[in-house]
Simulated assay, not measured.
Amino acid sequence: MSVCALTNIDVNSYVPHALHGADRAWAETNCYIDVWLEVLHTLKLEPLACLPMVFANDFDGDQWTFYKPAHDDLFALYGVDVQELNVWRGLLDNALTQLQRGRLVLTETDSFYLPDTAGTDYRSNHVKTTIAIQEIDLEQQRLGYFHNSSYHQLQGEDFIETFRIGKPADPCFMPLFAEFVRLDHLQQHPPATLAAMSLTLLRKYMSRRPQKNPVRQFQPVFLDAVEHLKQEGLAAYHAYAFANLRQLGAGYSLGATYLQWLQQHSELRTELCLDAAITEFNAISDTTKTLLLKTARAVMGKKAVDLAPLTEQLAEHWDQGMSLLTTTLHLDAG
């Protein structure tokens, strides 16, 4: 018997949100925000409204911010209430209880058993990621879940391994972090109302923006890292690119799309001329995509490639984009 938090979702006809469309420069961003984009989309809520947090992104020394929608933001915008799930009976039993109560379960899990990662991690790499469990069928040993850019299913051995069914007690095994999503207070605001609420969040996150250009902080660290990656190989490059270049480029790509949505739906759209800032943040996305490809060639080809000009372009786009957005929102330039 199948237990669903929301409703039966046909994995074959599921249509992802446009942010995960084939025309996007970055079809995937990071596992947590990607899951939320699809969950909110399935709930017929506008996920773009929760994206202002990307404008607080920073270079954190060895990675760019792994941005996530804050739980307070999700509740303020949509009435979505996220709480930690105490997996005291084991993930399967605790998840079933929540699904039966109409609650989604977000959990960290191992990509090794996720068939949607075929070609990257499936049955080849043990990598932690986040999924949102929406359906469990014990009899068919089937799991329906949101992950990355869409909705998927797994079953059989993957189901058994994901939930550790039949595994002997292992004192060294520590359950991964999990959350459940309460929908009791769910709200669907008119677009103009939602945009006004989101604009408040944008001002909040702009007040938390880096005080110094984070791309300039990133430049010397990145150029040094490329030299080390030449010795470490492709696997190290992919890990580095995900933690740094993808989070940088995809974050500001989301930011540009968010500003387009805000300008379209805000009642202040006559005052919010965001086109110039949007152009700068899209340029960060496009330039980072170019940098990603050139870095791969530099690492694998072992030839000297001058990547400094691209990082300088990124720094200039960040300065211009943030300056324009600060001025448009009438914020303190800091």
Score class of each variant (00 low, 15 high):
Tyr252Val: 14
Thr288Ser: 02
Asn244Ile: 13
Arg269His: 12
Ile284Trp: 04
Cys273Arg: 01
Leu310Lys: 00
Gln260Trp: 00
Ala304Glu: 06
Gln264Phe: 04
Thr257Gln: 11
Glu312Arg: 08
Gln231Arg: 03
Glu316Met: 02
Tyr240Thr: 14
Ala296Thr: 07
Pro309Gly: 03
Met300Phe: 13
Pro309Cys: 06
Ala296Tyr: 12
Ala236Lys: 01
Lys303Ala: 08
Ala236Glu: 14
Thr311Pro: 14
Leu293Ala: 12
Ala243Gln: 08
Gln247Val: 04
Gly251Leu: 13
Gly249Val: 10
Gln263Asn: 04
Leu274Val: 04
Ala315Met: 03
Ala239Thr: 10
Asn282Asp: 15
Asp275Trp: 12
Lys289Ile: 04
Phe242Arg: 15
Thr279Gln: 08
Arg269Leu: 09
Ala250Met: 05
Asp286Ile: 09
Ser253Asp: 11
Arg246Pro: 01
Glu267Asn: 06
Gly233Ile: 15
Arg269Val: 07
Gly233Leu: 14
Arg246Ser: 04
Ser285Glu: 08
Ala283Met: 02
Glu232Tyr: 14
Thr295Trp: 11
Met300Asp: 07
Ala277Ile: 12
Thr287Asp: 03
Leu268Ser: 14
Arg246Cys: 06
Thr290Ile: 10
Ala256Asp: 14
Arg269Ile: 05
Gln313Lys: 12
Gln264Met: 07
Lys303Cys: 07
Leu259Gln: 10
Thr295Lys: 14
Val305Arg: 01
Thr288Glu: 03
Asn244Arg: 11
Glu316Cys: 00
His238Met: 03
Leu274Asn: 10
Arg269Gly: 12
Tyr240Arg: 08
Ile278Ala: 01
Glu232Lys: 15
Val299Phe: 11
His265Gln: 10
Phe281Tyr: 07
Ala283Ser: 09
Tyr252Asn: 12
Leu292Ile: 09
Leu314Ala: 00
Phe242Ser: 15
Arg246Asn: 08
Val299Arg: 05
Asp275Phe: 08
Asn282Phe: 13
Gly255Thr: 02
Val299Tyr: 04
Ala256Pro: 04
Leu310Pro: 01
Pro309Val: 00
